[in-house]
Every structure is written in C-alpha cells, then in structure tokens.
C-alpha cells in the first residue's frame, strides 16, 4: 500500500475568501514510503492548497486523501494522522513560538503529552539531525533565515513524523540558507527514511528529487523523473516555469541544423558536468 494516496481530489475556496475557480481539480496520485517528490507549479497553481489537504487542514470537496491508510476526514484519527505528516511553511518568522530554540522544538511533543524524559531525547535528536544542537539555548530571532527553518524542521521531526511536506520552505532564504535546507532534506529521506514532498519553484531543487509532479490550474500537468519532466521544455515554459539552464541550453542548440548535423543532444539534462561533457562531444563531432 502506498504511504500517501490521493484519489480524485477537488477543492475550491469559498467566494468570500477570494475563491475564483477550483484550486485543486480532480487530482489523483500516490507516493511510496521513503521517496522524495518535488511539486512544481507557478504561484496560484494549487500547490499549497494541495499541501493543506494532505494533513487535513483543509477538507476535500470531492475525492479523498489517505495517509498511511488514514482518511483525512476521519476526525477520530486526525491527531494520529498529523503526527505522521508534518508541514514546514514558507516564512521562517511565522513558525517559531518560543524564545529559546530547544523550547520551540519541544512545543509539539509537549502538546501531545509526551513524558518529559522522552521530550528531552526527541528534542536533542531532532536538533542533531538539522545540525542545530549548538544553538539549542539561542533565541530564534538571533538566527539566520536558514537556521530558523532548520529549527522549524526540528520541531516537526520531534513528533516523529513519517512524512514532511515543505511548502516553499526555501523561497525566502538566501542561497546559503537554501543549500543548508536541501542538505537537511537529503539526509531526511536518505538516512532517516522520511518521505519528503518538496513544494518549490526552484528548478535546481526539484532536480534533486526522485520524482517531479508539475501542477497547473489545480491539475497535474506532468509527472515523472526530473529527466522526463525537464525534457518537456516547451510545456514547462507554457506553464510559466523555467527549466535548469543546462537543459535550456541543450534545447536551444538542438533546434539548430549545424548541431543536428553533428550529434543528437539528449533531452532533460540538468547536471552541469554532463552538459559540459556533451558540449565537448559536440565540438569534437564532424558534420
């Protein structure tokens, strides 16, 4: 059984909340346990609505979401469900509640009534995973954006989730903060077997996932490996998205006769070393 199962899911916001049209429109997909899926889409494509439907913050209008077999509409089991799937949001300043890092991380476990000894262990372990243990006594406002987001991840981790949804959690960070987050995300799914759903509009982040789902107008437009998805350059452009620059360069070149006479450039290349290798081959080839 897949960890996450979304079947025929639809949702629209009520008119008084600026509800224009359907935010999520008959979406179906499944996610296996321990995988790393990126969800791409321009602003307003339904990505964040989808995230909120996954842990029952929003209730489907049609269709259903099952997390490890629990339906998000099952009120008796909603707390159990939310301990399985945590969300890290966009704004690093909106998610921390305490004036000391370790107390902030302990907030979730305290709320669900864990014994103090377990809480202390969980907090330490979570801060270790995000490499923030040396800051455990620090005040959150003295941290950088990337560090705050890592504390927010630790707060989710302390509850022992099986899946974490990152809802544009890197959008407000500088390049260094984004790199720190991506490193933590990599460890979460590689070393701790946590299922990761990364909502982003940075292509280089999506390229690191095992699978990329592209949303448009509330529906799934593309779904495949990064290589398969980035092969659809024209489609992604039409959807208001970019492709990695290496993919774009090879796409532009392969449209030219002089290149076609020499070699056939593969589609969907997003690694710079591979792109450079292909360009060398192009120069070596004779028409």
């Amino acid at each position: 059984m897949p960890f996450l199962s979304v079947q025929d899911l639809s949702f629209s916001y009520p008119a008084e909340q600026n509800g224009v049209g359907v935010a999520v429109d008959r979406v179906s997909f499944t996610v296996e346990k321990g995988s790393f899926v990126a969800i791409l889409g321009h602003n307003g494509s339904g990505k964040s609505t989808l995230a909120k439907l996954l842990n029952g913050i929003l209730i489907p209008e049609r269709g259903e979401v099952l997390v490890d077999g629990i339906r998000t509409t099952d009120e008796d089991r909603i707390l159990e469900l939310r301990r399985k799937i945590g969300i890290v949001f966009q704004n690093p300043d909106n998610q921390l509640v305490s004036s000391i890092v370790e107390e902030d991380v302990a907030f979730g476990p305290e709320n669900v009534g864990m014994p103090p000894k377990v809480i202390a262990e969980r907090v330490e372990e979570a801060l270790n995973v995000v490499r923030m243990n040396e800051y455990r006594r620090a005040a959150p406002h003295t941290l950088s954006g990337g560090q705050k987001q890592r504390v927010a991840i630790a707060g989710v981790l302390a509850l022992g989730p099986e899946c974490i949804v990152f809802d544009e959690s890197t959008a407000m960070l500088d390049p260094v903060g984004r790199a720190e987050m991506m490193e933590v995300i990599r460890r979460l799914y590689k070393e701790h077997s946590i299922t990761v759903l990364l909502i982003t509009h940075y292509m280089e982040e999506a390229a690191k996932a095992e699978r990329v789902i592209v949303m448009n107008d509330g529906a799934i437009a593309l779904d495949g490996t990064p290589k398969e998805v980035f092969s659809e350059v024209e489609t992604l452009w039409k959807l208001g998205l970019d492709v990695p620059q290496s993919t774009e360069l090879l796409h532009l070149l392969s449209a030219d006769e002089r290149v076609q006479e020499r070699i056939q450039l593969p589609k969907g290349i997003f690694e710079e070393t591979e792109a450079a290798r292909l360009l060398r081959r192009l120069f070596e080839a004779r028409p």
Binding site: L249, L252, L253, V259, L279, R280
Partner: peptide, 24 residues
C-alpha cells in the same frame, strides 16, 4: 569550456547558444 574558445563570463543561455554556434 573556455579551452574550446568559448568566451568567459557568459550571462544567459541565449548568449551561450549564440557563442557556441558561432564556434561550430
């Protein structure tokens, strides 16, 4: 790839494509 005669400091993919095609 500057050893292939491609100028350094290219800023956009369009510019890169033009410079590469020129050298082909």
């Amino acid at each position: 790839l500057c050893d292939l005669g491609i100028p350094e400091g290219i800023t956009t993919t369009e510019e890169a494509a033009i410079e590469i095609l020129k050298r082909l």
